[in-house]
Design a binder for these strands. Structure first.
Length: 483
RNA sequence: GGCGGGGUAGCCAAGUGGUAAGGUCGGGGUCUGCAAAACCUCUAUUCGCGGGUUCGAUUCCCGCCCCCGCCUCCA
């Protein structure tokens, strides 16, 4: 099956073909965070979806060139810096740093560029775009000195969201400065300085002020990726007005189709409601980590539901993620042990091709459904289904002794390949010395058949987050859950 | 009101015009000193509701109901 995505623009599943004539490079723009506080896990759901997209495209052989912007100037960042009485840059910088740390925690691949809105080069590019729009009559300076986009001159406006402009209803969420504008729907490209902005301002042909939010993305995307993008992503709440505005501005300047595939992810809910800072019902990644969950557990929990379906965040869901990941870990560990048997006696009886004929375990197929599931608009549930079925089947074969070390190696390779997309695999870590000591004591107790002491030591280990299991090959100690 | 997304087992969640993947939880079993892990097994005659098309619909069509979101700077 061909790779296909649901395009918000057409509201249809479309086969994916990049702009690059060679069919190799894919240009992706993803809306990033506004750094006025820590991003919450709802934000990270979107970034995880984008990470999954990038990783799958890469697995499919595309070379992804991706940009994610950092909005470090807007009403909220200015308000924050004033409240703390520090310069804007000083206010946003810790949140930028935290954002990148959080990306690492969740094993989200870095974009190629993280342009910042306050970068003078970007501001200059934004001003250039606005100049072009003004010159073309697509924008005008109003009495309040701000510059607005004239949506009536861009007939396509509303097409992405499928909105009829005449039907737009004000939610009253935004303070209206409507009488300065020709149309309520006209949006700011350049916001004239006012007292609330304090020292935050840049010079422009229209006086001092700062750029509007939407123009930021248009300028950065075209600067770094060119006038036409393959894929543009974001949360569904960005469809209107943000992405609509981006189309208007960019196409207003270039006259070319801006984005070929628009992909939007649904919201993360908490108790059935959208998780958002304004409602106050949000968790930051740090909140979840503080409960003892690891980055990859959060990653799994937020990634396991299809990106276009709402996902309800619950602690029960976190526990499920922990269990599922533990199952994967145990399986991988088992395969590694099996695979190593090969290394220990490498040369002995060179060829035993006969083992293949004993109706043993099948080797992994290059594709046994995992890639194909993701090709279908990133059907992660289908892909995970393939993984877990594989786990059950290979575990069964291991139980029966019908999976030899070379087959184990082959399955391990299969796993390592798909984990380049999932990135949920854990790392083997050495036992801390005190755990080692307790484990050793338990082995001795067991040799002496001192079951009571053995059980006590097992409880002791469990209390420290480690689990002792007695297997045919002796005691095994593993970390359960958490980091 | 307009525009979207979603309604499948206790919970999470795939999916197909031919009779329901997978995860998690819970019950039973094999294994174990006891456990754990793993494996086996049980848990939706049924896919929001009502019509229609069809030999047959959870899947296609029509009409409803419920939940969530967007409707001018929220991922």
């Amino acid at each position: 099956m061909a790779l296909r995505f649901f395009n918000t623009y057409s509201r249809e599943l479309e086969e994916f073909h990049p702009l690059d004539p060679a069919g190799h490079e894919v240009k992706v723009y993803t809306c990033g965070p506004t750094v006025y506080s820590h991003a919450h896990i709802g934000n990270f759901r979107a970034y995880l979806f984008e990470d999954l997209l990038q990783r799958h495209l890469e697995l499919r052989g595309f070379n992804v060139r991706r940009v994610m912007n950092i909005t470090d100037v807007d009403d909220k960042t200015i308000r924050g810096s004033r409240a703390e009485g520090v310069p804007l840059e000083q206010f946003t910088s810790p949140f930028k740093k935290a954002f990148f740390e959080d990306l690492d925690t969740l094993l989200i691949k870095r974009a190629d560029f993280f342009p910042e809105a306050t970068d003078p080069k970007q501001i200059a590019a934004m001003i250039e775009m606005i100049k072009t729009l003004v010159a073309r009559g697509l924008a005008y300076q109003a009495e309040d000195k701000s510059v607005y986009f004239r949506i009536n001159r861009f007939p396509e406006y509303g097409r992405l969201a499928h909105f009829d402009l005449a039907e737009l209803r004000s939610t009253g969420r935004v303070k209206s400065d409507e009488y300065d504008k020709e149309h309520v729907g006209d949006f700011a490209l350049w916001k004239a300085w006012d007292e609330e902005d304090g020292p935050v301002k840049w010079e422009s042909p229209w006086g001092s002020g700062r750029p509007g939010w939407h123009i930021e993305c248009s300028a950065m995307a075209t600067q770094l990726l060119g006038e036409q993008l393959d894929i543009h992503c974001g949360g569904v709440d960005n469809i209107f007005p943000h992405h609509e505005a981006e189309i208007a501005q960019t196409e207003g300047c270039t006259g070319k189709k801006f984005v070929r595939y628009w992909l939007h992810c649904a919201h993360l809910l908490v108790e059935g409601q959208k998780m958002s800072k304004s409602l106050g019902n949000f968790y930051t990644l740090r909140d979840v980590l503080a409960k003892g969950y690891s980055g990859r557990e959060v990653r799994y929990a937020l990634m396991r539901v299809h990106y276009r379906a709402p996902l309800n965040f619950t602690w029960e869901g976190m526990e499920e993620a922990r269990q599922a990941i533990g199952r994967v870990d145990d399986w991988v560990r088992r395969l590694r042990e099996k695979a190593e048997e090969n290394v220990q006696r490498p040369m002995s009886n060179v060829q035993r091709p006969i083992e293949e004929e004993q109706g043993t375990i099948e080797r992994p197929q290059t594709s046994n459904g995992f890639d194909e599931a993701l090709d279908d608009d990133l059907n992660i549930s289908g892909a995970l289904g393939v993984l877990f079925e594989t786990i059950r089947e290979t575990n069964r074969a291991l139980d029966l002794g019908s999976l030899d070390s070379s087959a184990a190696s082959a399955w391990l390779e299969w796993w390592e390949r798909i984990d380049r997309v999932l990135a949920i695999g854990g790392e083997e870590r050495a036992l801390p010395p005190e755990i080692e000591t307790l484990g050793e004591a338990r082995v001795q107790a067991r040799l002496a058949k001192d079951w009571r002491k053995s059980d006590e030591l097992r409880d002791e280990l469990a209390a420290r987050g480690w689990e002792a299991r007695d297997t045919k090959d002796g005691q095994k100690i593993t970390r359960r859950g958490g980091t």
